[in-house]
C-alpha cells in the first residue's frame, strides 16, 4: 500500500465531525450511554422501581412497623392465640385489622407484617453484602491472574478450579451444625455467626465465575495498545490495573452483579427453608417453611413471603436482563 507522495496535501485535517453545536462538545462515556438506554427501557424502569420499593421497605422496616403499631416477636401465645393455636384477631378467622395487617403467626402470635418487613431486610442484606464481597474477590483475583500471567496466574486458576469443584450445598450443610455446636448456648452470638456464616458460604462459592471472566478479559485487554501506551508513559502497574483496565471491565462486572443478587436472594431463602440458614432472625425462607403446614387453613401466612420473594427475584432478573442488554457492546449504537 503506497501513496502518491507528490499529491500530498498540506491543508489542515479535513476529517469529519466538526460539530458547531456547543452543547455537543461534552462526550458521553460508554457507561453513560448504557444508563441512558436503561432510562428508555420501560421494563427496566418498572423493575428498578420495584427493587427500589423493596429496598425502601427493608431499610424503613423499623419506621414502618412503629407507624403501623406492630412489633417484631411481640406475640403472647396465651393472649393472642386461641385453643387451636390460631390468632384471635385478623386472618384467617377474622377480618382485616390494622392491628395486624398480615395477621399473626399461629402458635406464637407474633406479627407477620413485622416479620415480612424484617425478612425483606435479611434477604437484601445477605444478598447485597455477599454480592459486594464476591465481586471484590472475583475482580481482584481475576485482575491479578490476567495481568501477571506467569506462575501467579496458574496458582489462581488452580484455586478457581478447586473451588468450582467444591459442592456448595455440602458446605452449607456442614456449616450449620458446626455453628450450632459452637454458639448454641448464646442465641445472639449464634445469630451473628449464622449471618456472617451464610454470607461467607455464599461469597466463598460464587466469586470464581467473575474471576474467570475478568481474567479472560484482562488477558485480551492487556494486549491492547493503550496498555502499552500507559507503560511507555511510565504509569505505575497499580494505576494501569485500576485506571486503565478496570473501567473497561464495567460491563462484565455489572452483568455478574445482576446475576448474583437474585441468585443470593433465592439461596438465602432456600437455606433458611431447609433450616440450615438463618434461624435467629426473620427470613422469608423460614416463614415459608413454617407456613407450608398451614396452607389449607391460613393461605395468607404462606402467600406473603412467597409473593415477596417472587416479586423481588423477578424484578431483579428483569432488571438484570435490561442491564445486560444496555451494557452489551454488540448492541451498542
Amino acid at each position: 500500500m503506497a501513496m502518491p507522495l507528490q499529491e500530498m496535501v498540506t491543508s489542515p485535517d479535513t476529517d469529519p465531525i466538526e460539530t458547531p453545536d456547543a452543547k455537543q462538545v461534552a462526550g458521553r462515556s460508554p457507561t453513560q450511554i448504557a444508563l441512558e438506554r436503561l432510562r428508555h427501557d420501560k421494563v427496566a424502569v418498572v423493575s428498578a422501581a420495584i427493587v427500589v420499593l423493596f429496598v425502601a421497605l427493608a431499610i424503613l422496616a423499623p419506621v414502618i412497623t412503629s407507624l403501623v403499631g406492630v412489633e417484631l416477636n411481640a406475640g403472647d401465645p396465651s393472649e393472642d392465640t386461641d385453643a387451636f393455636n390460631f390468632p384471635v384477631i385478623g386472618p384467617p378467622d377474622n377480618g382485616f385489622t390494622w392491628e395486624a395487617p398480615l395477621g399473626l403467626e399461629p402458635g406464637t402470635g407474633d406479627d407477620l407484617l413485622a416479620e415480612w418487613l424484617y425478612g425483606a431486610r435479611t434477604s437484601l442484606e445477605v444478598a447485597s453484602i455477599s454480592t459486594l464481597l464476591s465481586t471484590i474477590i472475583g475482580v481482584a483475583l481475576g485482575l491479578v491472574a490476567g495481568f501477571s500471567r506467569g506462575w501467579l496466574d496458574r496458582v489462581i486458576s488452580f484455586v478457581i478450579d478447586v473451588f468450582l469443584s467444591f459442592p456448595f450445598l455440602l458446605g452449607a450443610l456442614a456449616m450449620a451444625p458446626i455453628l450450632l455446636n459452637r454458639f448454641g448456648g448464646d442465641p445472639e452470638a449464634l445469630d451473628k455467626a449464622q449471618f456472617f456464616g451464610i454470607i461467607f458460604i455464599l461469597t466463598f462459592f460464587s466469586w470464581m465465575g467473575l474471576a474467570r471472566l475478568i481474567r479472560g478479559e484482562v488477558l485480551s485487554l492487556r494486549e491492547r495498545e493503550f496498555v502499552q501506551a500507559a507503560r511507555v508513559i511510565g504509569v505505575p502497574t497499580r494505576t494501569v490495573l485500576f485506571k486503565e483496565l478496570l473501567p473497561n471491565l464495567i460491563a462484565p462486572i455489572v452483568v455478574s452483579i445482576s446475576l448474583s443478587v437474585p441468585a443470593f436472594v433465592t439461596a438465602e431463602a432456600g437455606l433458611a427453608y431447609l433450616g440450615i440458614g438463618l434461624t435467629g432472625r426473620p427470613s422469608w425462607g423460614q416463614t415459608i417453611n413454617q407456613a407450608s403446614g398451614y396452607f389449607d387453613e391460613y393461605a395468607l401466612y404462606l402467600w406473603a413471603p412467597v409473593i415477596g420473594i417472587m416479586l423481588l427475584v423477578i424484578a431483579l432478573n428483569l432488571l438484570g436482563d435490561s442491564v445486560r442488554d444496555a451494557f452489551d457492546p454488540k448492541t451498542r449504537r
Binding site: 462526550g27 491492547r224 501506551a229 511510565g234 505505575p236 486503565e244 473497561n248 464495567i250
Partner: peptide, 28 residues
C-alpha cells in the same frame, strides 16, 4: 515516546481525550 500503529486500540475507550493526553503530564 511511542506512536502506535492501531489508532483504535491505542486509546483507552473509557477515557476522555483530555485524560488520555493529560496522563503523561500527570504521571511526570
Amino acid at each position: 515516546q511511542l506512536i502506535f500503529q492501531d489508532p483504535y486500540s491505542s486509546l483507552n475507550p473509557r477515557h476522555t481525550v483530555g485524560k488520555i493526553v493529560g496522563t503523561p503530564l500527570e504521571v511526570h
